[in-house]
Nucleic acid binder design. Structure first.
Length: 573
DNA sequence: GCCGTTTTCGGCCCGACTGTTTTCAGTCG
C-alpha cells in the first residue's frame, strides 16, 4: 500500500521533536512542523502526486529539500535523516514530549541527568522522587509529571464534534449566568466546525473584576485545574477533555475571537498581512504603533487588512485569504438550502421507524422529499431486502405517497457493491426505483487498486447513482479503506454519478479535504444523513458543517434541487 | 528549512501562566 500522508507527517513531526530536543535551529524545527501540517491536511496523497509527476515543492511549506525527502519516504518508506537523528537521540523522547508540561528542554534534561528515555523510565523516576532533585525541577513539577504520566495513553483522542457539543453546552450555560459575563463564544476548532475537537476554547467578554474565573474552576465537572490566572485558565473535565477559558474586555472581543478561533496557520497569515501594513495584530486588537485601530468586532480586524470577514469554517489557510482578497469567497451551503434527504433506513431493515414516521419527520424539517434506502440482501445482518421484499416496499411507498401531503417519498435502496463490482440486486428490480445509493460494506482489505476498480466497475451500471460513504471510515474507530478517491470522483463526473457526504457524525465521509477535491473535479455531492430513525435526520447539520469546511456551495450539492430537477439528474438510463 | 509588495538573504507570532528562581526559563496555545 502506498505511504499515507499522515505517515509522512508523523515522520516529519518526530524529526522536529528530536531536533528540538537537540536544540537544533528552531526555525528549521518549525519548518518540519509546518510541512507536517501541510502534508497532513492535503487532500491528495503525496504518493499519487508524485506518480502524476507533480512538483511537490510548489505545495505550501514544502521546498526543494523537503520535496526530495517526501520522495524518499514515498519510495523507501523511511527517512535516512530520521534514522541518523534517532541514533543520537532516542526516538521515544518524542513520545515524552506529548505529556503536558514536558517540552524539549525538560525532556533533554531528564534524558541527560537521569537517562530517562521512555515513558516507562519516566514513570519509575517520578515514583522514586528523583526528578525533584534535578535543578530547575521541584516537588510540584515532579508531582504533576507523576499524575500525568500515570494516566497517559499515547494517543489522546480528539472527540467528535457532536460529543464536544454535549460537553460544552452545560458549561457554557453555567458560565453565561456568572455576573459580569457579557458575551461568550466557544472558539477554536469547535467554532471552525472541525469533525473532531481536541479541547474547548471558551472566550468570554467580561469586566476585569469579574469572578468568572473563580466560578469556572468550581464547575462540577472539573477534576483538575491546570492553570488559573486573571485572563486565562485551563482545566480538565471528568470526561478527560481540557477546557481553556480566556477573559477579554469587550473592546478586544473581535480580535480575541479571530485569535482563538484560529486556525493557527490562518492567524499567522493574517498577522503577516498586518505586518506589511505596519499593523500589529494580537488578541487584544489591531495596533498601529501604540494606537488601537480595530478589534471590537471580527469585521473590524479583517477590514484592517483589507478583507471581508471569512467564516470560521474556511479559516485553515487553504486559499481562503487569496479568495477573500479577490472577492471570490464561496457562498457556502446552508441548512436552508437543503430540500431533502437522500439516504435513510426504516424498520424494514435496520432502521427504527416506519416510512410514514420518517416522512412526517422530514416534512417537519421543511423538506420536499425524502428517500427510503433500506439495505439490500447482501447486508444480511441488517435484514437486507431481497427482490421480493423490495418490490413490496415500492408498492407501499407508492400508496403512502398518495396520502402524504407536501412531501414525497422517493423509492430507493442502499445496494451493496460486491467484490467483483456488481450490485447485489438485479437490474429488473432496480429499474423500478427512482434512483440508487450504492456502497461497499464488506471486503475493506482489498488493495487500493482492486478497491478502486471494484467501485469503478459498479459505476458502469447505468442504474448506479450515488456512492454512499465513499471511504467507509468511522471516526476514531475504523480507518478508511484504501481507494483512489480522485479516480472515483473523475469517473463519477464522467458517468453522471454522485458522491455522498454521509452526514452521520460517526462517519462524515467525505472529509473536508475530499470535499475540496470534489469541488475541484466538479463532481456533485449528496449530503445525506443515513438516518436510522426519525430523530437522526437532525444529523444533516453535521454534514452541512463538513460541506462548508470543504468549500461546497449550493450548486455543488444535489439535494438543494427541486424534485423534478433531481429526477432528471438520476435518469442516466 | 521555507519564503518573497524587504525576492536569493534575512527574517521567521507572541503573550499568559507556572514553578523555581529572586528576575526568568520553560511550556503552551
Amino acid at each position: 500500500m502506498p505511504v499515507r500522508n499522515s505517515e509522512i507527517a508523523d515522520i516529519f513531526e518526530k524529526l522536529a521533536d528530536l531536533l528540538e530536543i537537540e536544540e537544533s535551529n528552531p526555525f528549521r524545527v518549525r519548518a518540519y512542523r509546518n510541512a507536517a501540517q501541510s502534508i497532513r491536511g492535503h487532500g491528495k496523497a503525496m504518493a499519487d502526486l508524485l506518480e502524476q509527476g507533480a512538483d511537490l515543492s510548489e505545495l505550501p511549506d514544502i521546498g526543494e529539500d523537503l520535496a526530495e525527502k517526501i520522495q524518499t519516504i514515498v519510495t523507501t518508506g523511511e527517512l535516512p535523516l530520521l534514522n541518523e537523528v534517532e541514533s543520537r537521540t532516542p526516538a521515544a523522547l518524542s513520545d515524552m514530549m506529548r505529556i503536558e508540561g514536558l517540552g524539549p528542554k525538560r525532556v533533554k534534561t531528564l534524558y541527560k541527568t537521569l537517562d530517562i528515555k521512555s515513558i516507562d523510565d519516566l514513570k519509575r523516576a517520578a515514583r522514586s522522587g528523583k526528578i525533584r532533585e534535578i535543578p530547575g525541577f521541584g516537588k510540584k513539577t515532579e508531582d504533576r509529571i507523576r499524575t500525568r504520566v500515570e494516566g497517559f495513553t499515547s494517543h489522546e483522542q480528539r472527540v467528535k464534534l457532536c460529543v464536544a457539543e454535549q460537553i460544552a453546552e452545560p458549561l457554557v450555560d453555567y458560565l453565561r449566568k456568572v455576573k459580569g459575563v457579557k458575551d461568550i463564544v466557544i472558539a477554536g476548532s469547535f467554532r471552525r466546525r472541525k469533525e473532531t475537537v481536541g479541547d474547548l476554547d471558551i472566550l468570554i467578554a467580561a469586566a476585569r473584576d469579574s469572578i468568572v474565573m473563580d466560578r469556572f474552576v468550581e464547575f462540577g465537572e472539573v477534576v483538575e485545574v491546570i492553570s488559573k490566572g486573571r485572563t486565562r485558565a485551563r482545566v480538565r473535565l471528568r470526561c478527560g477533555m481540557s477546557v481553556d477559558v480566556r477573559v477579554v474586555p469587550a473592546v478586544s472581543f473581535g480580535a480575541a475571537l479571530v485569535y482563538f478561533t484560529g486556525s493557527k496557520q490562518h492567524n499567522i497569515a493574517i498577522r503577516k498581512m498586518g505586518v506589511r501594513r505596519n499593523l500589529k495584530i494580537n488578541e487584544y486588537g489591531v495596533f498601529r504603533d501604540k494606537k488601537r485601530v480595530a478589534g471590537k468586532s471580527e469585521k473590524s480586524v479583517y477590514a484592517s487588512v483589507g478583507l471581508p470577514v471569512i467564516v470560521p469554517e474556511l479559516r485553515e489557510n487553504r486559499g481562503e485569504l487569496q479568495a477573500a482578497r479577490k472577492n471570490r469567497l464561496p457562498h457556502l451551503i446552508t441548512m436552508e438550502d437543503i430540500r431533502g434527504d437522500l439516504h435513510c433506513h426504516t424498520r424494514a431493515t435496520d432502521g427504527r421507524d416506519t416510512p410514514r414516521r420518517m416522512a412526517e419527520a422530514a416534512a417537519e424539517r421543511g423538506y420536499e422529499y425524502l428517500s427510503i434506502n433500506d439495505h439490500s440482501k447482501r447486508v444480511a445482518v441488517a435484514n437486507g431486502l431481497d427482490r421480493k421484499r423490495l418490490l413490496k416496499q415500492i408498492k407501499e411507498i407508492d400508496k403512502l405517497n398518495e396520502k402524504l401531503d407536501g412531501i414525497e417519498l422517493l423509492k430507493s435502496v442502499e445496494l451493496d457493491i460486491l467484490q467483483d463490482g456488481s450490485l447485489d440486486l438485479p437490474d429488473s428490480v432496480i429499474k423500478e426505483l427512482d434512483f440508487t445509493v450504492c456502497a461497499v460494506h464488506y471486503g475493506f482489505n482489498l488493495s487500493r487498486r482492486k478497491q478502486t476498480d471494484r467501485v469503478l466497475r459498479a459505476m458502469d451500471n447505468p442504474y448506479f447513482n450515488i456512492l454512499a460513504h465513499p471511504t467507509g471510515r468511522l471516526i476514531n474507530e475504523r480507518e478508511p479503506y484504501p481507494i483512489n478517491l480522485e479516480a472515483i470522483m473523475k469517473a463519477a463526473k464522467e458517468r453522471g454519478c454522485f458522491l455522498e457526504l454521509n452526514a452521520h457524525p460517526d462517519r462524515l465521509d467525505l472529509t473536508d479535504d475530499a470535499c475540496l477535491l470534489a469541488k475541484e473535479i466538479q463532481v456533485r455531492i449528496a449530503v445525506s444523513t443515513d438516518a436510522h430513525s426519525a430523530s437522526d435526520l437532525r444529523y444533516m447539520r453535521c454534514g452541512i458543517d463538513q460541506a462548508r469546511r470543504g468549500w461546497l456551495e449550493k450548486t455543488d450539492i444535489i439535494n438543494t434541487l427541486s424534485l423534478s430537477k433531481l429526477k432528471e439528474l438520476f435518469a442516466r438510463r
